[in-house]
Simulated assay, not measured.
Amino acid sequence: MTDAPGDGLICSAKGCSEPATWALRWNNPRIHTPDRRKTWLACDRHRAHLSDFLRVRGFLREVEPMASDDQSAP
Rank of each mutant, 00 (worst) to 15 (best):
H46C: 03
S51C: 07
G6F: 10
R55N: 10
K38F: 12
P5V: 04
D69H: 14
S68V: 15
M66L: 15
A4E: 15
A48K: 10
A48T: 09
D35V: 11
H46T: 02
G15T: 01
A13N: 10
S12P: 00
R25T: 02
G8N: 10
D70T: 08
P34N: 09
N28Y: 06
R57Q: 14
E18C: 03
G15L: 05
T2H: 15
E18V: 02
E62R: 14
T2C: 13
V56H: 08
A73F: 00
R30V: 00
W22P: 00
H32W: 08
R47Q: 15
A4H: 12
K38S: 13
G15Q: 06
W22Q: 06
R37G: 03
W26Q: 05
D7V: 04
D52Y: 00
S17L: 08
D52P: 00
H32I: 03
I10N: 02
P5G: 07
N27I: 00
A4S: 15
G58A: 05
C11G: 04
D7W: 07
L9A: 07
A48R: 11
M66K: 05
A48W: 01
P74A: 03
C11H: 06
C16A: 04
L9C: 07
L41D: 01
D70L: 12
S17Q: 13
E62F: 14
L60T: 03
K38E: 15
T39V: 14
P34A: 12
D35F: 10
S17D: 13
L50F: 01
A20F: 07
F53H: 12
G6N: 06
Q71T: 12
A73C: 02
R47F: 04
V63R: 07
G8E: 13
A13K: 08
P65N: 05
D44E: 13
E62S: 06
S72L: 10
F53W: 08
E18P: 01
R36L: 08
E62W: 11
R45M: 04
P34W: 11
V56D: 13
A4P: 08
N27H: 15
D52T: 08
P29S: 09
L50Q: 15
F59N: 08
C43E: 09
P65E: 14
W40G: 01
D44W: 01
D7M: 12
L54M: 07
A73V: 03
S12E: 07
T33R: 13
P5A: 03
R45E: 12
G8M: 04
D52I: 01
S51H: 06
P19G: 12
H32R: 09
D70S: 12
S72R: 14
R47T: 02
P34D: 11
L24Q: 02
G58Y: 05
G6Y: 05
R30Q: 12
N28R: 12
